[in-house]
Design a protein around this nucleic acid. Structure first.
Lengths: 322, 322
DNA sequence: CTGTTAGCGCGTTCAC
DNA sequence: GTGAACGCGCTAACAG
């Protein structure tokens, strides 16, 4: 080679291998710098069999909850020399499958997934390929994987109990399919709180939508107010449903909280607002991201070889919607 | 091989090469499926010399403006079979440099960057390595690269002109260093609007912070109100400065908009709020992401071999802060 | 300490 | 149509 040095010596310099004479090391480094040499990490991965890359799949990065999770993941990963590759699933199982495939093809060292598939349909390839996986936020029942999530049932209970303390006895629920674990848990929290308070669970007060998004919340609230007697308060199982419901109520001429109080799971106002409106149960999104990454990296390094499930406590914030 | 077929035939099957007998193709495909075979894309990249991967660097993914840009990038990229690798720079030049290096090592096909370095310090390696690059949001003066941004000067002018129409004559400015292009442009918009209206530009009404974040806005507003006479309105050059200033004013006992009106650049309330508060100049974040990716992909495919600069118009939203 | 050799997994000739 | 052979850029033994 140019420096009168073999290619393997260069490799040793690049990898800070100890057995290199200082003088040659220096000479090689100078030449490398001079020619703006950038090693090909993919080639190196090919033989090392690790890419120092983790993949992240989230349903909607423009939702502050997921973006904050992502920030936690990214910071923890980069602190450990890992690079993050991202896929937005848009609540679409097919996209999830496609990304899973693409990421496996790129031989990522591990995957953090907020699953949209409820049965883990897209997880088959990963399990066979023994790639470390950590689920975040949503759980998949019967799946033996690590997980970082929130105490959804407890949080939902607290939210409803708070409404009960405020004197509400007719409390509606706007939620999404219980096939998705977090909604199942939040629904259970709602049932539990009502029962413990000796309140009746009325089916017509429970509205289940197809997706946990604004439009659905907007339409479900219409049928909720038509109940007779109508509820005096409502629990929206996530932020999208809540904002949709609030807009719906306003169009119907209802005032929040006087005509109808609202509480919801998930933060809505994310610090970019002067006077937050919604009483909400805020999850520790950033910490969830950090902890999930921590778990994943430990699985990758074999420091941890059992699956582990972590549930963080969400916190109640009382605002003007109640 | 197992199928009594050579490894190169398998390769041909994987790449849909025409010269393969239908019967053997079918046989190979069956076996591949059976063994849950996942091709190694990195190995393939090594010989093909393209990774179908683009890198994205943004200052703060938990800020809805950047997250929305990112969503636009991700969707456009994945539609075209590209995967996205992400780095959060946290307004830190060193992180930007490190990421640049890591991404180049991984041989990404192109890079979309919202630069924190004002002179393009971290861009040297990329220019020598002829990797396609598109800047987004912030411009680097004297840098011959493609760019997608907003008409920052025009937007700022409109914002200030609106204040003037509302009768304000003493208008303060809270901004960040003009070394960062977007702030330079927004400052110019402010000067221009005042001058065209025949209003005096008073130095003491102009507060320049180190970073465009809440804490800085919070502290700068303190000195702004101490001017004599104090301004009756203020233009915050981005969302972070605006929310910080608003909190600061509240603590000082000022009422917005009665004691002090506020307008700002960038959206603050992002649809997750029932009654948006800030009069703001909202950028087309999603479209910026899409267009930047579009440009980048065309540069990668050599469909476009000149640099191109695109400026989108931001839109004024009038709310309760004025 | 340093050079040589043999792959990592795959795409691409070039013969057959 | 299909297989053998070579090389992408790099690391990991193995000799020296």
């Amino acid at each position: 080679m140019r420096a009168g040095v073999s290619i393997s010596t260069v490799s040793r310099v690049l990898n800070n291998h100890p057995y290199v004479k200082d003088s040659t090391r220096k000479r090689v480094e100078e030449l490398l710098a001079e020619m703006d040499y950038v090693p090909n990490y993919n080639a190196s991965s090919l033989v090392r069999k690790r890419t120092k890359t983790i993949a992240v799949m989230l349903p909607d990065i423009s939702n502050n909850f997921f973006a904050t999770i992502f920030l936690g993941i990214e910071e923890k990963a980069s602190q450990n020399g890992f690079v993050v590759i991202f896929g937005n699933t848009s609540e679409d199982v097919n996209k999830e499958k496609e990304y899973m495939h693409m990421f496996l093809e790129r031989r990522v060292d591990g995957i953090i997934l907020d699953p949209v598939s409820v049965k883990g349909e897209s997880l088959r390839p990963i399990l066979n390929n023994e790639v470390p996986l950590v689920l975040i936020d949503r759980e998949i029942v019967g799946m033996e994987t690590s997980l970082v999530s929130s105490n959804n049932e407890k949080g939902a209970s607290e939210l409803v109990e708070y409404l009960i303390e405020r004197g509400h006895e007719r409390i509606g629920l706007i939620t999404a399919s219980k096939e998705t674990s977090v909604f199942d848990m939040r629904n259970r929290g709602y049932f539990g709180a009502l029962k413990r308070a000796g309140l009746e669970v009325r089916d017509e007060y429970i509205k289940v939508g197809t997706k946990p998004v604004q439009e659905v919340g907007h339409s479900l609230v219409q049928s909720l107010v038509r109940c007779d007697p109508a509820p005096t308060a409502l629990f929206a199982a996530n932020n999208g449903l809540a904002i949709g419901a609030a807009h719906g109520l306003r169009e119907l001429g209802y005032e929040v909280p006087n005509d109808m109080a609202i509480v919801c799971f998930d933060e809505l106002d994310n610090g970019a607002v002067l006077d937050p409106f919604f009483t909400s149960m805020n999850q520790q999104a950033y910490e969830m991201g950090v902890k999930a990454t921590d778990l994943l990296l430990k699985q990758i390094s074999k420091e941890l070889n059992v699956t582990k499930k972590i549930y963080l406590d969400p916190h109640l914030f009382i605002r003007r919607s109640t």
